[in-house]
Simulated assay, not measured.
Amino acid sequence: MEVLIVLLVVVAVLAVLALAMAVKIVKQYEQGVLFRFGRLVGTRDPGLRFIIPFVDVLHRVSLRIVTMPIQSQGIITRDNVSVDVSAVAYFRVTDAVKSVIAVENVHAAINQIAQTTLRKVVGQHTLDETLSETDRINLDIREILDVATVEWGVQVTLVELKDIQLPDTMKRAMARQAEAEREKRAKIINAEGESLAAAALGDASDTMMAHPLALQLRNLQSLVEIAVDKNSTVVFPAPLMSTIGELGSFLARETAAATLSPAPPADLTKTIPGPTPNGVPESV
């Protein structure tokens, strides 16, 4: 009797273990791939699933988007500049059967091909293109990965360059280039300002030449602005150019008058004062 009870207990334990091994749960974001005696049977949808212990093997494959960092790669660009570039890739499994049968470890395979593709694509561009055209480089990498991983049942949804490390010498050279570019823009802006100011001053001078009193009014306005500070002494000169012009006109008139009028003849009967004994001027 005791032997029978022990046998029943052993059978019950084995039944419980077999039931535990036969029951499988496939989560909502997963899909099961079932093998029976090593041969593919099919897929299993999410939910509670039963398999035959020691006969069936169920592989659960996640269908969620996977974030995979691509470690930094030492790359030489097309213009022979050494840079370290790291990126990040996003992919998801679209065919669970292919992801299990076509490749041994889909995550390791995608990681390796992503590294080689990153080196290949970045090496075809110059440093300036790598820094400024990251969107085009990301698209090229994703397209190459899609072609390579379609046979694995994987779709690469996005690839982004994450970090670009430059040598210290290149950083200093780029800093000097940026400073020179800013100085060039500053000089161009200064020259444009001088040109506009000169044009405005030319228009103002034409207006003042047409209206002479405008210069005097401007001088008075400047005097009012300076006179706000009562602690300063203001020396306000007369308009220099107008003064020189008036002086030149005066000298020209005097010279013309002296040239046109002859000198008067000498009067012999003119009384020339001279010393006399009586102190009376002597007539000649």
Rank of each mutant, 00 (worst) to 15 (best):
S72A: 15
H125M: 03
S62R: 04
S72H: 14
M174L: 12
T149A: 01
V66L: 14
E192F: 12
K184D: 10
V224H: 03
V9I: 13
A22H: 01
L34C: 00
A89K: 00
H107Y: 13
L4G: 05
Q115I: 13
P262L: 05
V23N: 07
A198I: 10
D45V: 07
N138G: 04
L201C: 06
V147C: 08
E2Q: 11
V280K: 04
L196D: 06
E194N: 10
N231A: 13
P167D: 03
V26I: 15
D168S: 13
M208I: 06
L63N: 06
P281A: 12
V235A: 10
R36P: 05
P281M: 10
Q31G: 07
S283W: 07
P275C: 09
K27D: 13
R136D: 08
A175N: 13
P273H: 14
L14Q: 04
S62I: 04
E192T: 11
G123W: 05
K162R: 15
S283K: 01
S82T: 14
E30T: 03
A227G: 07
Y90G: 04
S82R: 09
Q155T: 14
L127I: 00
R136E: 09
M68Q: 12
S232C: 09
L217K: 05
S132E: 12
N278L: 12
I244A: 14
V97Q: 01
V228A: 07
V55A: 01
K24D: 08
N219D: 11
A266Q: 05
V106S: 02
N278Y: 11
A22T: 03
L161D: 00
H125L: 06
N105S: 15
I141L: 10
A214F: 03
V16Y: 08
P265T: 10
T43S: 07
Q221D: 07
E181D: 05
A114E: 07
Q115C: 09
T149D: 00
Q31F: 08
L213R: 08
N105F: 14
R60T: 05
P264G: 06
T157E: 13
A18T: 09
V154A: 01
E183R: 15
L240W: 11
V103S: 03
M208S: 04
L268M: 09
E194F: 13
T169A: 11
R36N: 08
I137S: 02
L63F: 04
E192H: 05
L213C: 06
V235Y: 09
L17N: 04
D163F: 00
P46E: 02
K24V: 09
H125P: 01
L63A: 05
K162Q: 13
V57R: 11
V100I: 12
A257Y: 12
V41W: 00
A180P: 04
D203P: 08
V3M: 11
T243K: 01
K120S: 11
R142T: 05
A186R: 15
A15T: 11
D168H: 06
A199G: 01
A200C: 02
T271G: 00
A263E: 10
L139G: 06
A199I: 08
P53K: 07
D84W: 09
